[in-house]
Design a protein around this nucleic acid. Structure first.
Lengths: 165, 165
DNA sequence: TTGGAATGTCAACAAGGCTGACATATGATG
DNA sequence: CATCATATGTCAGCCTTGTTGACATTCCAA
């Protein structure tokens, strides 16, 4: 990391290298979503439901506003998804304790079950790729992805990482 | 690369590490598409048009079947996109020479212009991330992405890479 | 000549984005 | 207390981009 001095060290920044990276992102993202998509098929849910379940599982009690920021969609769009999850008993929405305008979101047992199934499938997929590429490659992978994020999302990502562990 | 022996070397495969990688992919993909999306906004085209333009630029004269395989959508879905691009004079469709059932796709000058603008924007974004992360990280990034692809797409990706350079 | 492949097209539908407008409850502030 | 701002929900309508199914055309190949 750090500065690049010059000469051949810059070969990884050629247009051709960048184009290959772009295509790799495109094809890999399909593989990335394939496993959970396969589970969701047949259920009445889609990727949007998966994403909501993921982050509610990740930060139990998260309020709607925060979830909107993370997902980067409008409240109308999220609401459609959230409503079905609540109606179907996968998500519980509790009135905030300190600020009663807020709704805090939690997974029910049923919701946690589905989230686990989706998570497990996606992690299996990811684990296979990681194991194949090895720890050094994974470190590089994470560095490049982090550099690709928009600043706001990088901050969000970091904050989730901090909450983790 | 190669086999992992054991012990601490496997720490990069913990559920928490995998979860972070999953979230990194999610957030990074938004950054990845942001630059071309910004250009497309206002034009009458969307991401689907961008993808078609990209691969037609990449392999001039590609036929429809091949493009369908690469994009992974139905012919009806692609056709809607392709039709507008042809009508608007961005793409030219020529009857195949050896097999006259096939249509071979080419960018017109106008099409190549838009494709360049989109490509340049996305490469700029990618270049910044690459430069920030450095060549070793980029190598790892590419390895993990390739391992994440579904086998069919990995073959397609490799064949495009071979055509490249 | 006949079957199958490549392509195009019509129709209908669904998911999941978006905007705009409006209602409600509650917190915060002068 | 009055007022304004915030958090949330909801209705209506629209767009893009994916899907299936059906059908026509053209043309290669056995």
């Amino acid at each position: 990391m750090g500065d690049i001095s010059g000469g051949d060290a810059l070969l990884f920044l050629t247009d051709e290298q960048l184009r290959q990276g772009i295509e790799a992102m495109f094809f890999a993202y399909r593989g990335f979503t394939a496993a959970p998509d396969a589970i969701l098929e047949g259920l009445d849910y889609g990727r949007a439901h998966h994403r909501a379940l993921h982050f509610i599982a990740r930060v139990p009690g998260m309020n709607v506003k925060r979830l909107l920021e993370i997902l980067g969609v409008t409240k109308q769009s999220l609401n459609r998804v959230l409503r079905t999850l609540i109606e179907d008993g996968l998500v519980e929405s509790r009135v905030g304790t300190s600020d009663k305008r807020e709704r805090h979101l939690f997974l029910t047992e049923t919701g946690a079950d589905l989230e686990s199934r989706l998570s497990d499938a996606q992690r299996r997929q990811m684990r296979a790729a990681y194991r194949h590429a090895g720890p050094d490659a994974v470190a590089g992978f994470r560095q490049v992805l982090e550099a690709m994020m928009e600043p706001g999302m990088r901050a969000t990502y970091a904050s989730l990482r901090a909450t983790g562990a």
